[in-house]
Amino acid sequence: MVEKQNAISLGVPKDDFLGHVRRSLGRDQPLETAPVHLPLTENFADLEVRAKAATERLETIRGELVDRFEETARVRNWNVFRTSSVEESIGYMADLAGRLGISKAARADQPVFAELAVDSALQNTGIELFVAAHDESTSDLRVRQQIIESGLGITGADYAVAETGSVVVLPRKGLSRLVSLVPPVHLAIVRAKDLVESIDDVFLFRRLEYLHKGGDMGSYLNFITGPSRTADIEMKLVVGVHGPREVHLVLLA
């Protein structure tokens, strides 16, 4: 839950500002009833029905979704490693760490790592693996410093979107905002059950969750679609300007 702070407001008082907007619209008074806009007329029960239908739809096309996601993700410059084997997944990560020649990697603390015991495999390659999560002994600064020193950041995915080839992460407890952003290489683990068809699906499930949690969206949501890019100098594409230059997907499906 959100801890309530006393909201401060500088500048024009809200009611003055909104009054001015209202007069610009040719009205003197606030609307007496909410304007009719279809998505906002939906309540929790409506969304639950729609989300259930979406889940069933996704279930029936799961196999096809994996193919579609793989294809789109490749076009968006993810390095995709698809396998149904946990051992091979772990092997891919260990090989990557070896190839990168790094001395430190950071991973998020998410349930997926209970399925994929990457820690010992990575440590066996001789690198230091940092689990980027707080406990009593770690301060914010220490977590941040460890991530900065890491040559590879590893996360799970909250959703993977077939339409766009995106991995969606919801930073929260156990998932730092920086693990998928600050190291020069990011690896995301996607399982078949993380897949959705479109960005509409993501928003449908998030809206349901929002109402379920009594109006808390969570502080952050990121769609990640390939490496960091810029074309700001002479429109020439350069990858890896502020975010990762290289991104990998282990598609465990």
Binding site: A132, S219, N222
Partner: peptide
């Protein structure tokens, strides 16, 4: 590459 959606400050148990 990125679509970032911010809703309020970090929550208490966020990293």
């Amino acid at each position: 590459s990125y679509v970032s959606m911010v809703t309020g400050p970090r929550r208490n148990d966020d990293e």
